[in-house]
Every structure is written in structure tokens, then in C-alpha cells.
Write a protein that binds this DNA or RNA. Structure first.
Lengths: 131, 131
DNA sequence: CGGCATCCCCGATGATACTG
DNA sequence: CAGTATCATCGGGGATGCCG
């Protein structure tokens, strides 16, 4: 489905390195501090606001709401308000969101696997500049 | 999946959801606006400062230098100063950096594949709130 | 050419308190 | 419980000029 949007006219091939390409925007959408974690968390199943806060550990209510709203806006996250009293809102991944979460889980595992190497490199780097 | 107990004494298992775990730090290192693009670009081979600027399209000299320095500090990027006149500095991926770039390329491809879906969802979302 | 220093703006992030 | 409002802060990021 080739949308004839007013992109660059030679943008027949999507390229994240093209600043005018929407794919760049898509990448920046998940490039924040909480986006990847939220999506990874929701991969475990639908979650409520409080559950997400607990899962992420140190996210503020404001940032959680704000990021969720932006993810919902771009169709990655679905929000279901059960309209009960007290409120009950459930967040879950959309199909597109799920297609993304698979890759992000790989990223998570990369971080959990290699963080030691990074820590060591950082210490070495800092030590060399301290003297 | 131990979702029933907190990871108090189970700190032996790296978890990006644990704010005190270094893996979280590793994830945040690449969560910026330029990190993923820079690493993806360097996956194509060693590059000089000017070449990177051209490849990324709209990064400022300041942010490029700053991000490269942080990536080098954490051992993802290697910097080779040929110490010639005029200067010639080449950046390349370290082995760990290369292990990361593989996943990031998948992410790039995801963005290039699904950005249309995101654009459509965003338009729909905004239209619904405009009226 | 690569990159550091400086000034400056603004958005991202966050702590706190309040509301339906 | 979920979300908003407010205020304060921090750092991203651009512009410019200087240096080895």
C-alpha cells in the first residue's frame, strides 16, 4: 500500500538514514528512555497503569502516561478504558506493536548479556582519563 | 518468567526492568536520538567524521562528537586517530558494537517496513481529537 | 579536518499536589 | 486507580568562533 504522501519525491525506498523519511520518525518514536521498556513489558501481556509502574520500577506517573499516550497515538499500544468506578484501564500491544516487541526483546537480551563488557570498558576509559 | 516475586535476592539474573541493574544502563545508552543511527551507519564499515555527518543527514557536529564519545567510552565504538596533518580520524564498531548492530539493523528494517502503519494511526488519532 | 568551548533556547523529564 | 496540573530542573541541541 504505497501512500502517495508528500514525502521526498525520490523516496521510493524507505531509508532510516533519510531525515525526511517517516521511517526515521518511527525510529525516533521508540528512541526515548521509556518506550522500549514499556513495549517490552506489555509483551508479557495486557497491563494496568499501576502494574506498569511496578514493572518499570522508577518511571514517574507523568512520563508513563505521556509515553503511553504517544505510543497509542502511533498505533503501537491499545488503551482500553473499562469505564468503571474505580477506574480500570488496560494497556496492551497492537499487532504492529507486537511485531516490534519481538525485536526489542532481542535488544533487552543483548543488554542483559553484554552490560558487563560495557561497564568494564567505561571504567577503563574513565580511569585512563583520571590520571 | 518469575512474575510472582520481586528480585530482591535474585539479583544474580540480569534484568533490564531492574533500575539498579547495569543492563538498564546499557539500554539507556542506545536509547538516544542518534545512537542507533550511528551504530547502524558504522555497521557499513569504518567512517570518518565528515562521512558520518553526511550519512546521518541532519546531525550537528556537536551531537555527533558527543554521542561518539559516549559510545566509545562504553566500548561500543573504536576511535582511531591517525595523527596526520590534516587530521584523519576513523570510527568503527568494536566486537561488542557489532553484536549490537545486528539487532539494530533489524530495528531499522522494522521502521522502514511499518512506518506507513504508524503514520496512518497517528493521522486517525489526531483527526478524532480535532473534531 | 576534526573537535572543543561558549552561549543560549526549549523540550524532555521529574516531584508534588490535586481531581473524577 | 488513573490521570491532570503546576512548577522546577536538566540536558539535548543549534549557532558561533577558536585551535592543533
Amino acid at each position: 500500500m504505497s501512500t502517495d504522501l508528500p514525502q521526498a519525491h525520490a523516496a521510493s525506498v524507505p531509508d532510516v538514514f533519510d531525515p525526511t523519511c517517516s521511517s526515521r520518525h518511527a525510529l525516533e518514536l521508540i528512541a526515548g528512555k521509556w518506550q522500549m521498556l514499556i513495549i517490552s513489558a506489555l509483551e508479557e501481556g495486557p497491563m494496568r497503569n499501576a502494574a506498569l509502574m511496578r514493572r518499570l520500577g522508577d518511571v514517574s506517573q507523568k512520563m508513563l502516561t505521556q509515553t503511553l499516550k504517544e505510543l497509542e497515538r502511533n498505533g503501537l499500544v491499545m488503551r482500553e478504558d473499562k469505564k468503571t468506578v474505580p477506574p480500570h484501564v488496560e494497556y496492551s500491544l497492537s499487532p504492529v506493536g507486537r511485531s516490534l516487541s519481538e525485536t526489542l526483546l532481542v535488544l533487552d537480551r543483548w543488554a542483559e548479556t553484554h552490560f558487563g563488557t560495557l561497564d568494564a570498558a567505561r571504567e577503563r576509559y574513565d580511569a585512563e582519563r583520571a590520571k
